[in-house]
Amino acid sequence: MGELPVNVRGVAAASVDASYQIAAAAGADSFWLADHLNSPYPRAVASTQYVGAARLMPDIDAYLEPWTTLGRTAGRHRIRRLRLGIGVTDTGRRNPAVTAQAVATLHLLTRGRAILGLGTGEREGNEPYGVDWSRPVTRFEEGLATIRALWDSKGALVTRDSPFFPLHNAVFTLPPYRGRWPEIWIASHAPRMLRITGRHADAWFPVLLFRPQDYAAGLDAVRSAASDAGRDPAAIRPATLFFAMTGRSRDEIDEALAGPFAKAAALNLPGEVWARHGVAHPMGPKASGLQDLLPQALDEQTVLAMTKDVPAALLKESILTGTPAEVIEQVAVWRDHGLRYAVVCNASAMQPSLYRGLAATLPFASIIRRLRRL
């Protein structure tokens, strides 16, 4: 189960605590936090006028730092000890040596429960903070190699040439937990990143894939790359991160999908997905969506104008929607296309009504329970 760790009025980590407890009670295997400096959704429509959750989370850009928060979560919740993952961090704004230390620390403190989700990141979390956004895939590959080099060094000094992260007599002596380093789950979509995943990942972990057939094609590419690298393709876990919009009735869900806040989420989808539904992405047909969007720079009227014609079908292609039974049917189709591990994040807080968003907690917990039986 996944969670967006946004600061909550009164108790900063209240939503994280509640989500972890739901995950544990529903029998989830793992608990994941997103890693952002600010929200990938436009702050201009994240007000009580458009989304009920804004009454509890007054600033959608106020993200908690995930490694610190996961450490707190591990120490606070001891009844069911779920695996803990970051879904996902990037190799641009955080030096990979620091990431290697953070996840190795969490792995030791939790007795082997840490998972490192890695991706290239997004422009909104790099460029505004002075981090070079050019060549993100090359930077990612070098960051991944840096993490592996430090983990595999066994305390020996490491010197490694790199255009981004050169090492000169670097030392890393934190030990693996019982001889095992954290698994690395890679979020990848495009051909080059899929090849990197096949060569190096423990799991393929894409976010915002849109159709089961796209997933099957990507998984084939990952497995082919693994085979070419002399790895066992079956050793790479086929996973993904879903967002799910659920509720007590179909009418409540459809009403939420028609709201400005839910429609604004469509800006994170690429132009080709918009085109499949007969509408043009406001940033052009070749817009990449999440990776290059700068949502914090958009004002309210601009967001409303950009998204006024977003059809519900476009949103339904990018997130799971419906009653628990309907959502499970949708995931079953993905299972039939190769998926074996689903991390689901509750998007029901996008409801215009705070009451309806909170009431969706029970059907969402039902989804988590039913997933274990798929």
Rank of each mutant, 00 (worst) to 15 (best):
E300W: 06
R335Q: 13
H337I: 07
T307L: 05
D336I: 00
W274I: 00
L304I: 09
V327G: 10
Q330R: 15
S288V: 10
A332R: 15
L290Q: 12
A297Q: 12
E300S: 04
T302P: 01
R276P: 02
L314M: 05
L294D: 13
Q330M: 01
V279A: 02
L304H: 08
K286H: 13
G284H: 02
L304F: 08
V331H: 10
L298F: 08
V333P: 04
P311G: 10
L320S: 07
R335D: 01
D292M: 10
M306N: 12
G322F: 09
H281P: 01
E272G: 01
P285W: 00
M306D: 12
D299V: 01
D292E: 13
L298C: 04
W274F: 12
K286E: 15
V331I: 15
A280P: 01
K308E: 12
L315T: 05
K308D: 08
A313P: 05
V273N: 03
L294P: 03
T323F: 05
V273Y: 04
E326V: 06
A305T: 14
H277A: 10
H277R: 14
L290P: 00
E300Q: 15
S318D: 07
H281R: 10
Q296C: 01
L290Y: 15
V331S: 07
H337F: 11
R276T: 10
D309L: 06
T307Q: 12
H281K: 12
V310R: 10
V273M: 06
H277Y: 08
E272L: 08
V310I: 10
L320G: 11
V310G: 05
D309F: 02
V303H: 12
P282K: 03
D309Q: 14
R335S: 07
P311N: 09
I319C: 02
P324Y: 09
L304W: 11
H281D: 09
A312I: 11
V279G: 02
Q296W: 11
K308L: 00
H277M: 05
E300T: 15
P282N: 05
L314P: 03
I328W: 07
W334K: 12
T323M: 10
L304R: 13
A297G: 00
A313L: 07
T321K: 00
G278M: 01
A280C: 05
L298K: 05
D309C: 07
E300H: 09
V327F: 01
P295C: 06
S318W: 14
G322N: 01
P285M: 00
Q330Y: 06
E317S: 07
L293R: 02
